[in-house]
């Protein structure tokens, strides 16, 4: 019937600065007016780290209701103390751990991310709404080192240097690497399953397109260290030598 899988999905973080929800709703409405498509059905995480310690009690049920009214999809919270976390759980929110990396493991809302994928693919323009101005292609000329993360929001990523073990490339569009790919590369992270990954030498720790992924041990050994193109075909990752 279904399969449980890990996945890495960008979520919009919403930093809560106070507990006055009426004020919050007002400001949110203004924000959404500026880029309605970007916010439409976007999954959001509510961050509590910036909250004044005096704002102990947050009415999470009300907060969820407000977000839903604004056509946002509240997924969970980050930060906050135990009382707030308990109240958030009560309101149906997930508790996400600190630090971006863990997000993929604790992302316990497969239906919601799937929903986002579907939404994005049926309407491929959504991901570009955020940066309408300027070229969305990001070009990196220096090696991407272990521990570094590069994200090309709303466009393609081109790397003209090696990508090290322990580094991570993310793009809403395609990823091109003119060098060895030894780290992780995730294309189409907002759900574009037509996105592709190109690299000169496939030595990756992980490759992913629109949430479909393979870790290095699942990659067919015959492609190791070859120049390849990776795409989604019939719903699965497909690797082809260049």
């Amino acid at each position: 019937m279904f399969q449980l899988k890990g996945g890495l999905y960008p979520l919009t973080a919403l930093q809560l600065l106070g507990s006055n929800l009426a004020l919050f709703e007002e400001q949110l409405a203004l924000k959404i007016q500026q880029a309605p498509k970007f916010f439409h059905h976007a999954p959001v995480v509510i961050e509590l780290q910036k909250l004044n310690p005096a704002d102990i009690s947050i009415n999470f049920k009300e907060l969820v209701a407000i977000l839903s009214r604004k056509k946002l999809i509240p997924v969970g919270i980050r930060g906050g103390h135990p009382t707030q976390q308990a109240a958030a759980t009560e309101a149906g929110l997930a508790i996400l751990t600190e630090g971006g990396k863990e997000l993929s493991k604790s992302q316990t809302q497969p239906e919601k991310s799937a929903e986002q994928t579907v939404q994005a693919t049926t309407n491929p323009d959504t991901s570009n709404e955020a940066d309408i101005k300027g070229t969305p292609t990001k070009i990196i000329t220096e090696p991407v080192r272990s521990g570094q993360q590069v994200y090309a929001r709303g466009g393609d990523l081109i790397v003209l240097a090696p990508v090290s073990h322990g580094s991570e490339l993310l793009a809403d569009g395609h990823i091109h690497i003119y060098g060895p790919l030894r780290g992780r590369a995730l294309a189409g992270v907002t759900g574009d399953s037509t996105a592709r990954i190109f690299c000169q030498s496939l030595e990756a720790e992980l490759i992913s397109i629109a949430g479909e992924y393979k870790i290095s041990e699942d990659i067919d050994q015959s492609f190791w260290r070859l120049g390849v193109e990776i795409s989604i075909e019939a719903g699965r990752l497909h690797i082809r030598p260049l």
Binding site: E142, P143, R145, S146, G147, Q148, H165, G166
Partner: peptide, 12 residues
Amino acid sequence: VRDSDRIIGVLN
């Protein structure tokens, strides 16, 4: 080598 790679990133 991994740690050196990381420290080069930090230097940059």
